[in-house]
Design a protein around this nucleic acid. Structure first.
Lengths: 245, 245
DNA sequence: CGCCTACTTGACTTACTTCAAAAACAGTGG
DNA sequence: CCACTGTTTTTGAAGTAAGTCAAGTAGGCG
């Protein structure tokens, strides 16, 4: 497995030019690794964390818990993401984080990050930009869950996950890990589990994709993209070509 | 009308301790004021802006335009908000901005902002925090539009608008300006206009609120809050008490 | 083997959308 | 001031997509 430091440097480097001094500053941070089981929480709504998380491997989810007990998934994070940079500035977590499949997460003390931001403002700006990319993904989720049909909505989610997985170099051939249950898919897309199942069956039948054994398989990228009304501009990924197939 | 500089200083001051030097730095920035008519666009999807906007008065909206021509509103901004701080770091706008009612917006050159961030890192952190509060509002919108009933959804939106208007000192008595049409409400909450009308009629009938002549009137705050399943923690506003009534 | 969880499928119900038309309202020009 | 136009709001009736409920199957694990 890649070292946590390298994962972070690579991810920030995707969108920000890092100087040698920035990289040295990142390498000097303290990374504490922890492994999590599927569906294990590691930050809860209401917590006041003093560390920031970095996804080193696996997939991580952010979610709201409603009064009714219902859970709403807000975003998924892959290797290299900083899923709770919010926590740096915000008193109390307004949402929780959990591992989706088995995951490894590195924790970095806020205190050290603030010192590093002061010494290398460019590093701070890179993390800031990272949080803005996050926000763009949230915006797209609003639109996806509010304005699109169930099928389009689901196809769009798969497009996004595949596209981001590709950028994080997690795609092997035409597949990438997506360890998510139908129930969780429903709590992401705002649909009942029966509908999730039927909609997914339709997508499979279209021949554009499959989802099995925790893996997303993209068989016809262009077709899936069409079904999902997906255009990747909002992900603001530089120098990435379209997936094949 | 309050000066643009003061509006910004007051808003950032709500959540961040600003030193005299920070304030001086903000006052030295160039603010270019422009007035907009209702529904006039001032940043379009695809633009590459070189200025950041600050809402000086009125209400401003952010929206996605879909392939189908449908419009999805993403967020509303009140006096003091920086509705496109994203633009500071992101190549191309993935969404547009328009005035909702008549609005005054100040524009600040990115170049000057970056210089100010470098000279007063604390100012940069304050704006960063502002963008994170924004993201929290996006997250809540995902949950609202995905996991709540139509009535709850609409009540929640009104709660949020009223609560934020109060923080921005826009509430007079029990009312605040909300210059939005039923159609736009539908494009915000993901419902058909007929449903908007019927749902709004139900809310009016409950006696908790009214919406007329571009003003939101809150008659029973606690009741509206209950109907909207609203808890303001996600807004991360310090030192604000609950509205009366 | 038996238990638990996740997935699948069918039948039924209901929320919401769509369509359509009328009423209220705002703005424009005579 | 009023007629004319266009837009927004309101209401009704009909159609449909998705939710709910319930039962059954398949897969994973002690």
């Amino acid at each position: 497995m890649e070292r946590a430091q390298d994962v972070l440097i690579r991810n920030l480097g995707e969108h920000t030019e890092l100087a040698q001094e920035d990289i040295a500053e990142i390498r000097a941070l303290t990374f504490t690794l922890r492994d999590f089981d599927p569906n294990e929480d590691f930050i809860r709504q209401g917590d006041e964390p003093e560390h920031s998380a970095l996804v080193v491997s696996g997939m991580v989810a952010r979610y709201h818990l409603l009064g009714s007990g219902r859970r709403q998934y807000l975003a998924f994070h892959l290797t290299g993401d900083l899923p709770d940079a919010q926590g740096l500035f915000i008193d109390q977590m307004d949402h929780g984080l959990s591992a989706l499949g088995p995951a490894t997460v590195a924790f970095i003390p806020h205190r050290e990050l603030f010192v590093a931001f002061r010494r290398r403002p460019n590093f701070g700006l890179a993390v800031w930009r990272e949080t803005l990319l996050d926000a763009a993904i949230f915006r797209e989720a609003i639109t996806n869950n509010s304005a699109r049909s169930m099928q389009t909505r689901m196809a769009h989610l798969f497009c996004e996950l595949f596209y981001r997985a590709r950028a994080a170099q997690l795609v092997r051939g035409n597949r990438c890990p997506v360890p998510i249950s139908l129930g969780q898919l429903g709590e992401t897309l705002g649909m009942a589990i029966a509908t999730v199942n039927r909609t997914l069956a339709d997508l499979r039948r279209s021949g554009a994709m499959d989802l099995r054994e925790g893996e997303l398989v993209v068989l016809k990228w262009r077709e899936l993209q069409r079904l999902g009304d997906f255009s990747p501009a909002y992900l603001h990924l530089k120098r990435q070509s379209s997936p094949r197939a």
